[in-house]
Simulated scan of single mutants.
Amino acid sequence: MEQFIYKKSEDILALSASMSDFTYKKHCHEEYAVGVTLRGIQQYQLGGSFQSSHRGGVMLFNREQYHDGSSYDRDGIDYIMLYFRPELVSEALGGRELRFDTPIVYDRGLARQICALSGAVQSGREDALSGELLLSLIERLARTADDTAASSAGMDNRFIERAKEMMLGSLGDVLKLDELCLEFGMSKFQFIRGFKQHAGISPYQFFLNCKIEHARRSIERTKDIYAAVADYGFFDLTHLNRHFKSMFGITAFEYMSQLS
């Protein structure tokens, strides 16, 4: 049976999931994501490499790191995930970033900390407790991560960052590929090929992913699902629900209902 339960505290989104047949489409999150495989084998493509997280595996996702996801077999998987904003990490680490070089580690202490924080959020414990647990977790993660921020120098990185900025500035519209191509003096096919080569995903997939992510945040803030449909350029609620489910396992309406 497929089950996706989301709970949100002030700073953290927690997911408790069980699935067997469901498959996530390729997507990313603007937040950092860390999780623990509780049962079964979770498999996914990450940055062009195949990953398998067995029971007890701690999964570490950098922000904007594209991946899919599924169960290894029909026996299914149980797992938890936590999502937290880059600003919180920077604040906790004195301006530094986290950068995970190893996508899966087997560290019982780290897994216990993730489970403790997930349990606190899922059970609706006080935000003060969740904040303390989050700080402790970020400090633990920093000891296993490369704290050096990736350099943004180089034409390729500047091209990708500028293209992303332009797309993020027009999430309420359709993707204006012609304007992007004109900005960079590229043909349509040059732009698509270059973006996919350096970002790991097509421009359309990136744009749609961002629309869904920002629609989710809008729903969290306003509890108004139809405003999210209008503000982020979806044709109707069915259109939003279809894409939302491919990324989060449940529809946007179900997500809003869980948070209310």
Rank of each mutant, 00 (worst) to 15 (best):
D178T: 09
S151H: 07
R125S: 08
P103M: 07
R108Y: 01
H214A: 09
G119N: 15
I160H: 02
K164H: 03
L180V: 08
D146H: 12
S202G: 14
T144W: 02
L110W: 06
F191Q: 01
C115G: 01
I138H: 05
C181R: 05
K164R: 15
G169Q: 13
D146V: 09
D146A: 07
A199Q: 09
L180Y: 02
L180K: 04
F189K: 13
R158I: 08
L117K: 10
D147G: 03
L133M: 13
F207P: 09
G124C: 11
A150R: 10
I201S: 09
A142S: 15
S202Q: 11
E213N: 12
M166G: 07
T148P: 03
G169V: 06
L129P: 01
F184T: 02
C115N: 02
L98P: 02
A215E: 06
V105P: 05
T148K: 09
C115I: 13
L133Q: 04
S151T: 15
G185E: 13
K164F: 01
T148Q: 13
C115R: 06
R108M: 01
A153T: 14
R143W: 05
M167S: 09
A111D: 07
K211V: 06
P203C: 03
L137E: 06
F206I: 02
F100P: 00
M186E: 10
A150S: 11
L141R: 08
R108S: 08
L110Y: 04
G194S: 15
A153N: 11
I160F: 04
S151C: 09
F207N: 08
L134S: 08
F184L: 10
M166V: 13
F189Q: 14
F206W: 10
S187K: 09
T148W: 01
E97W: 00
L134D: 02
A150Y: 07
D101P: 00
R112N: 12
K176C: 04
C210G: 00
I212D: 00
A128N: 00
L134W: 01
F207A: 12
A145V: 06
L98H: 05
G172Y: 08
